[in-house]
Amino acid sequence: MSFWEKLSKMDNRIIYTALLVIMIWALIWPMGLPIQIGTSAKAAYETFDSFESGDILYVSFDYDSAGATDIQSSIEACMRLVLKNGGRVVSGALWPIGAQQANYAFKKMQEEYPHLVEGVDFLNLGYKPGGQMYIEKAMDSLIEACANVDNEGRNLSQFPIMKDLVTLKDAKVVICGNHGSPGASEWVPMYATAYAIPNNKPFVVAASAVNATINAPFIQSGQITVYLNGIRAGAEMELLTEKKGTAVSGMDAQSLSHILVFVLMILGNVSYFMQKRESRKQ
């Protein structure tokens, strides 16, 4: 068996180990590769930095903990910016586990801003079934769409924040954390196209990188006005809000793993052509 043949039959475990080693290496000893701030992150920063005292941001946590790796840092950076400016945040979720991701984010925000009061400055409405139907209903009455209960089953009418958020139209900006369906594909027709875009309101989507291809037509048509793509956007938002977190530290690991994939692509092709040459000679 020639060298090239041996190489092409390399055990998968060697590749897995190489990937694991370089990712751990990059996480423990980050190289600090410069992260260029893209236009989307800048637009998101401007959108959320324009929040004034009392303005409400509605966040839809339409993802689970698998998508959180890509999305949570972007969402948290946007929430941080809004709360810093005295704004308020209300969250919902079209995915059952999204409600828990919201709890996670609010807990973090409360640690950073201990003065925040639940029901006054923020509220987690929890998982709401129905997808498009929920959004359509919430455009007329949020309390009705939520069956008048929050994530803990409490009566929504008792919370002061809900008096200023009668419908989704009362939110200054809606941001959808998107890791599949239901998600951006439901928000685009029911909220962005029906209301936000005709009223010159932004519609922000923070999505996992795998959704970039699916959402691309909505971005080009202007139905999604600001698009935060994957952990990269999270890292950019963390830099803009001057609060480095998991997204920034994960970028070096992602860069190195991409380099490994590239090197393996070259090796795979070289071994393929060399084997072809050898077989032609024989």
Binding site: I15, D64, G67, I97, S257, V261, M265, G268, Y272
Partner: peptide, 28 residues
């Protein structure tokens, strides 16, 4: 439970993509 399990399942894609890049992406 859910957080590490879901993250682990999704992160497996990275390993499959890396091996696929080596074995499948050929200039045929």
């Amino acid at each position: 439970t859910i957080v590490p399990l879901e993250a682990a399942i999704l992160s497996q894609i990275a390993f499959y993509i890396t091996t696929a890049a080596f074995r499948v992406l050929r200039m045929r």
